[in-house]
Simulated assay, not measured.
Amino acid sequence: MAIFAQDALQGRHILITGATGGIGSETAKVLADMGAKLTITGRNEEKLHQLKVDLYDITEETNICAIAADLSKTEDIDKLIETAEGKFGFISGLANVAGISGGSTVDQLDLEDIKKIMEVNYFSTFQLTQAIYQKMIKQEQGSIVNVSSLSGLRGTYGNSAYAASKFAMTGWTQSMAVEAIQHNIRVNAVCPGYVNTEMARNGFKKKAEKKNMSFEEAKQDSLDTIPSGRLTEPTEVANAIAFLLTDAAKNIVGESMKISGGNVMR
């Protein structure tokens, strides 16, 4: 099949969390161009509305449903699923893109900060996925893609809280995948490194402050560790997510697809 053809996801209803972020918005654009009906969600209503308008340049207005939601709230999850299904029916695909960064070295970590990162990156994502997965089981079909991170594969200095949340997501992806494939449901993860988004830029700013260097010096210092010598673009992550959602990836199960520019190989 032509993986990125305009009918590759025709007839599919896919829900994207974190749609207002850099990776989430690009994922929405790629999937819309592949013919999917999309439910996009995020907490920022203004950004969500703008994304919805931008998607009208790619697909019909009737193919997009935008619902603001705070996934840490059970009532918001329930309303999100109910509204999405009311609009487009069965949710056959789920892209869990929502996530936050943060943290410090272990000796300076605040418990509340750890709880917040785990809540957004793991617990809320798990709860939403569980609810949709139970419906997928009844339909005996579906595909779920979790956006983890290279930090979900190896630890780095001052990154314990974020890495813990992403290791949780990677481990959950693998365990769930073994269960889900028995119901013809595929679960996989993508694990990007530095992506050209606000999250990465904030990371460079933090590094610059810590090491008393300029933003550009801090950025270049990080790029020097990557064999490709560049940041990953959000569209590249979106393309990986899209591929895993298509039938072209039918026998890819429980994988953690690295997008590292050669920085992590194993």
Rank of each mutant, 00 (worst) to 15 (best):
M1L: 10
F4M: 05
G11F: 08
R12Y: 12
H13P: 01
H13S: 08
L15H: 00
I16P: 01
T17F: 08
T17K: 05
G18W: 00
T20A: 02
G21K: 03
G24V: 01
T27W: 04
K29Q: 14
K29E: 08
K29P: 01
A32P: 09
D33E: 13
G35N: 06
A36H: 08
L38A: 02
L38C: 06
I40D: 00
E45P: 07
E45S: 13
E46P: 01
Q50M: 11
D54K: 15
D54R: 14
D54G: 12
I58R: 10
I58M: 12
E61S: 12
N63T: 08
C65Q: 15
A68L: 03
E75Y: 02
E75F: 02
D76R: 09
E85H: 10
G86R: 07
G86V: 11
G86S: 10
F88H: 15
G93K: 10
G102N: 04
G103D: 04
S104V: 07
D113R: 09
D113Q: 14
K115P: 07
K116S: 07
I117R: 05
M118D: 00
N121H: 09
F123Y: 15
S124M: 08
F126E: 09
T129K: 05
Q130Y: 09
I132A: 08
Y133Q: 00
M136N: 02
I144N: 02
N146Q: 13
N146C: 11
S148H: 05
S149V: 05
G152W: 08
T156W: 14
Y157W: 13
A161Y: 08
A168W: 01
W172S: 02
T173K: 00
A177K: 06
E179H: 11
A180E: 02
I181T: 13
G193A: 14
Y194W: 13
N196K: 14
M199Q: 12
R201A: 12
F204P: 03
K206V: 12
A208Q: 07
E209W: 05
N212M: 10
Q220K: 10
Q220S: 07
Q220W: 01
D221C: 12
D221S: 15
S228A: 14
G229N: 05
R230L: 04
L231G: 05
T232K: 02
E236M: 08
V237W: 00
I241V: 12
F243W: 08
F243E: 02
L245A: 03
V253A: 03
S256R: 00
S260G: 15
G262E: 06
V264T: 09
V264Q: 01
R266K: 11
R266F: 15
